[in-house]
Nucleic acid binder design. Structure first.
Lengths: 208, 208
DNA sequence: ACTACAATAGACCAGTCGGTCTGTTTTATT
DNA sequence: AATAAAACAGACCGACTGGTCTATTGTAGT
């Protein structure tokens, strides 16, 4: 398993999907750049959609691990939360950065029941969980809602960064996150409210 | 100009692009649902890409006008800013809401030089301008940076709303916006340094 | 009624798409 | 060396894509 060819395929597909989108990137293109035969793609992944799912899962794991690793040295969970935005800043500053793949995936696969859409939602859930864990460890009130706010901030930064491609959106998001956390510390912000992201994401879009 | 058929085409294309995406929606599909011949599309718009641009421009104008109209009754520009998020909330609550079209456009057209990408960027610029005008009228310090923060908040809410499809993301974004404005009022936020009285008076434009 | 234009249906095009099938070669295991 | 599995190149498929062309019909304008 995880044959060498399979990994190369995954890496190559990820790069192409990131820079050129899912629909516009044809299978033949991926195969050519990976130097791999068509049948090894279909033997290993089954279909283009499943390849996309594999790429999304792989990328999600990567990114979450990277965020954890980048903030592991920080002991204060409060500061760890802010450190995540600093890590985002370094991503945006990378000239190879070309926008958040998961946002692209939900846009390109509008059907919420499609597998790629589910994979993208799973990533957002993981990110929210990461925030929530840190909020809890920081003993902040109302961790679920706070976490969904922080995730929303990160999403907004991702959106903006796709357009401006500097670290500025992450820096601004960090400033706002500081405000939010500060207020949460001193006044129990946000007020008691059902958490937004965590519950609604697990199932499909409501009202369908 | 603006022939009746042309309008119907535009409206129909907008609906389909919104719900099913740009690439996945074929031209024949649009024509069939609009009850229009293929040649009238190409005579009026030239190509699918230009139709997409027309749809984006039309939708942008619509939305900006709607935001202005919804907040026109409010006299305090400070409250107008918050009113924008309230209007977003009503959009998200509409069961027909299926995510921000402009975010989808930048995701589906990764080439920043493509016309649809430019059209989407133009919308973000208009939204930021709207915020900036309100910030200026509210005599808030550092209006440009503040406006970009508010636009980022709105983007994040849009992202999240595409996934959860309730008004909650807009409400959370509004809460955060309140924090940001509050701080801007009392301490000249945002700024690169801790508030110093002499400095906030000079009020230099921050590095960009 | 004549003209000019808009819009029609639908055949048609070349190209691309994701995916299958075949037969051969490479690689690894024992 | 023998064998089984994996990867190979590439022909091939039907479906669909955006776009063009033609010939016909409907709709004003003077």
């Amino acid at each position: 398993m995880a044959s060498l060819k399979s990994k190369k395929l995954l890496a190559c597909a990820r790069r192409l999907f990131e820079t050129e989108g899912f629909h516009t990137t044809g299978i033949d293109r991926i195969l050519e750049e990976a130097g791999v035969a068509k049948m090894t793609l279909y033997n290993n992944f089954g279909s283009k959609d499943q390849l996309i799912v594999a790429v999304l899962d792989d990328a999600s794991q990567d990114m979450i691990n990277q965020l954890k690793a980048a903030t592991a040295a920080i002991q204060d969970p409060y500061e760890q939360i802010l450190g995540i935005f600093d890590e985002l800043a370094t991503w945006y500053a990378d000239p190879r950065f070309s926008g958040c793949m998961f946002q692209a995936a939900v846009a390109e696969f509008p059907d919420p029941d499609s597998d790629p859409a589910k994979a993208a939602r799973a990533h957002l859930l993981r990110l929210t969980d990461l925030f929530q864990g840190l909020c809890t460890r920081a003993e902040l009130p109302n961790a679920p809602t706070l976490a969904s706010m922080l995730a929303m901030l990160a999403s907004g930064a991702n959106c903006t960064a796709r357009q401006v491609r500097t670290r500025a959106p992450a820096d601004q998001a960090r400033q706002i996150a500081e405000l939010v956390l500060e207020r949460a510390c001193s006044q129990g912000f946000p007020g008691k409210r059902p958490p937004v992201i965590a519950e609604s994401l697990t199932n499909g879009v409501p009202g369908e």
